[in-house]
Computed example of a mutant assay.
Amino acid sequence: MIGDILTELRNRRGFTQDQMADALGVKRPRYSSWENDIAKPDIEMLQKIAKFHNVTPDYILGFESNNQVPGWATARDKRDFKKMLEEDGDLMFDGVPIEGDDRQRIKDVLTGLFWEAKQMNKRKKKSDSTNDTKR
Rank of each mutant, 00 (worst) to 15 (best):
Glu99Cys: 03
Pro97Leu: 07
Pro97Phe: 08
Ser127Gln: 14
Ile49Ser: 01
Gly89Ser: 12
Trp72His: 13
Lys82Gln: 05
Asp108Thr: 12
Lys124Cys: 05
Pro70Phe: 11
Gly112Arg: 07
Gly100Val: 02
Tyr59Ala: 09
Leu110Lys: 11
Ser127Ala: 14
Glu35Gln: 13
Lys27His: 10
Glu116Gln: 07
Val96His: 08
Gly25Asp: 12
Val26Pro: 07
Lys27Trp: 08
Ala73Asn: 13
Asp101Tyr: 10
Met120Cys: 10
Thr56Glu: 02
Arg30Lys: 11
Asp42His: 02
Gly89Val: 13
Asp101Thr: 08
Pro70Cys: 09
Gln17Ile: 06
Glu99Asp: 06
Arg105Met: 09
Gln19Ile: 03
Ile49Pro: 00
Arg79Ser: 14
Asp90Asn: 12
Phe81Asp: 01
Asn67Val: 03
Ser127Tyr: 14
Asp94Cys: 10
Ile5Met: 03
Asp4Met: 05
Gln19Thr: 05
Val26Gln: 12
Arg13Phe: 04
Tyr59Lys: 09
Asp58Tyr: 13
Leu91Asp: 04
Thr16Asp: 04
Phe63Gly: 15
Thr16Val: 06
Lys124Tyr: 07
Lys40Tyr: 15
Glu35His: 12
Ser32Gln: 11
Lys83Gly: 10
Glu87Thr: 11
Ile98Pro: 00
Arg123Trp: 09
Thr74Ser: 09
Lys126Ser: 12
Leu85Asp: 04
Arg12Pro: 03
Ile5Glu: 02
Met92Thr: 15
Asp37Gln: 12
Leu9His: 12
Thr111Phe: 04
Asp108Arg: 13
Leu61Val: 02
Asp80Gly: 09
Ala75Asp: 02
Lys126Thr: 14
Asp58Arg: 13
Gln17Lys: 07
Gln104Gly: 07
Arg76Lys: 15
Asp4Phe: 03
Lys40Gln: 15
Arg30Val: 14
Ser33Gln: 06
Trp34Phe: 15
Leu113Glu: 15
Thr56Trp: 01
Phe114Cys: 00
